[in-house]
Design a protein around this nucleic acid. Structure first.
Lengths: 192, 192
DNA sequence: CGCCGAGTTGAACTGAATCAAGAAACGTGG
DNA sequence: CCACGTTTCTTGATTCAGTTCAACTCGGCG
């Protein structure tokens, strides 16, 4: 199963066999059940978690304890609180399993070790941070400039599969609106 | 002046003299006047720009051509469209000089060269991408979960100096609200 | 069947936008 | 150093997108 991770990396930068063995020897297999809390807001993220199968959701709360979805992860992507992990400070988000999850994790210390030893490992770290950053920048502009309807249309255009993965309630709070508003928006799209 | 950049890097990872010379030999000095457009939305960002002195603003537009501020940069920070630079795709934002700017730039090709040659260079790239990412993640949560007033209070608490650097109009659109709303919010804070 | 969670719909409310007009602050030239 | 125009900020009245609260529908499942 670890080979799945190697396939992803191979497209970004080629680790030597030695480097890969070092890295993969540090990977810990982990399973989560639906509803499991993978990381609790306020805790420090000690693992980078790569999902082989299943779906996870990151979420947080506003000052009145309303819940907001921050991001979703499924097969072949990471589901850690990246900013907590890299800065080793308390996480702003919680992470939960929406379905049973099979994943591999590497600890902060082990990853730093890889970064120190391997130029290519460092490069993979850089590339993945950059990719995630570009994604966040796009989301920032969406949140900043779009109306509720525009945000929804933009989302289903870019990530049509998301609708099958998560509840509408989660889609709504991911867009920063209430489930009721999303329902009305979907209704208005049907009648047009 | 380039030494200012070295001081920043030195806190993150130590380049050898050789590596630093290679890097610094690629730096181009640039000056901009107040109002200059440093990068136009839709263009591909070919330079990573480090500001020695002055202030820049990134901005974009919604579907009705209302302008929104995306970020601000001043001394000792970067003012490029990072996501356009790293992916070499059209920028979602424009960048303008709010004051006269003195800066150093390195081109995409030269930076990739440094990344290839130098493990430490690669590390600096990773660390800076990570720092920027953590910043964007915080902003994402602010935009997602806070009311106009909360966003403003949060901003002036975290970046009190920003009020002296940029116009209130820019603060407002950075928070995703109108200048009129910001004015009312500031008024309501005064009377409380 | 009957319950339960997810989604929808309705009516009233509200935070922020819009449109429009003033007041301050700012800079430039006489 | 003041007068004038321009830009920035504020204030008021109105409108509107999206929230809130509450009730209802639908589909799955014990």
């Amino acid at each position: 199963m670890k080979i799945q991770i190697k396939h992803i990396f191979d497209r970004q930068a080629l680790l030597t066999d030695e480097e890969w063995l070092l890295f993969s020897s540090k990977l810990i297999e982990r399973q989560y059940q639906k509803g499991d809390l993978i990381l609790k807001q306020g805790a420090i993220e000690n693992y980078l978690t790569f999902i082989i199968q299943g779906t996870a959701r990151m979420f947080t709360f506003d000052s009145e304890m309303n819940e907001y979805s921050v991001s979703f992860s499924s097969e072949n992507s990471f589901c850690s609180s990246y900013s907590s992990f890299i800065s080793q400070t308390p996480s702003l988000v919680s992470v939960e399993a929406l379905e049973p999850i099979l994943a591999y994790q590497i600890s902060y210390a082990h990853l730093q070790e890889l970064y120190s030893i391997s130029h290519t490992g460092e490069r993979l770290g850089r590339i993945n941070a950059e990719l995630y950053l570009a994604f966040k920048e796009e989301r920032e502009i969406m949140l900043l400039t779009m109306s509720a309807k525009e945000k929804y249309l933009n989302l289903i255009e870019k990530y049509p599969k998301l609708l099958n993965l998560v509840k509408l309630e989660h889609i709504a709070t991911y867009l920063g609106i209430t489930p009721q508003s999303l329902s009305r928006i979907r209704n208005s799209i049907r009648n047009s």
